[in-house]
Design a protein around this nucleic acid. Structure first.
Lengths: 110, 110
DNA sequence: TATGTTATATCACAAAGTGATATAACATGA
DNA sequence: TCATGTTATATCACTTTGTGATATAACATA
């Protein structure tokens, strides 16, 4: 079971948006909305990454009935990959927070 | 107050290692160790990023007394930047987990 | 004084991300 | 019906970011 980890931020955001069926443009809007505009994925990045995720079979084309919209969704492997990366990211945050806490104590002592 | 966010994973790992004084090689080892080898920063990436962080004043040279080692550390701005990125990353994870939870429910219902 | 480890550094290249732009379907109101 | 705006996908040329390979040297030790 080959792993595509670690996921980059852009890839993570897109995959996190595709836990349920969504078309590309909706992913773009969702990321901008949920991050309050602090992370923006433009069309160039979006469709580049979607193409790559399709090739790696982390997402699939879910529905193409609409003449314009292409709806994608995570595959099982995609979901597992996302879950694994969530775990990695939690460790990351823990690591950073531990360091910052220790530093706060030092500041007070000074 | 210009922001350098969002931080890439590599930059985040390095900055998270520099909440206390550490030299480059130690940062490299620490990241590999705390991630269980799932994220490796080689010397090329390490020193490239350190150079960039110095230029942006997110870290400073803390001590150069040793003939070999160069010890770096986060500046106040660097710490604030790291804190802001931790917050962003928490939202990211929340976003992903909410999506996955919802999906689990759907699977059960089916 | 040879060997391994620690440590910093850079080059040439590869991978990832993006601003600009193109295209077109649909929605709407004038 | 047709101009305007929005939704939507797509790609090109470019920049930014990351890295494998390699070089250099100080120190530890045996």
């Amino acid at each position: 079971m080959k792993s595509f980890e670690p996921l980059t931020d852009s890839v993570f955001y897109i995959m996190a948006s595709l836990t349920e069926p969504r078309h590309g443009y909706a992913v773009m809007s969702l990321v901008e909305e949920t991050t309050g505009g602090s992370f923006v994925i433009g069309p160039a990045s979006l469709y580049t990454i979607i193409k790559k995720l399709l090739k790696e079979q982390l997402i699939v084309l879910h529905d193409e009935s609409d003449s314009r919209r292409k709806v994608y969704m995570l595959t099982d492997v995609g979901r597992q990959t996302l879950e694994a990366d969530i775990a990695r990211r939690k460790v990351m945050i823990e690591m950073a927070e531990k360091g910052l806490e220790r530093r706060e104590v030092c500041d007070e002592e000074h």
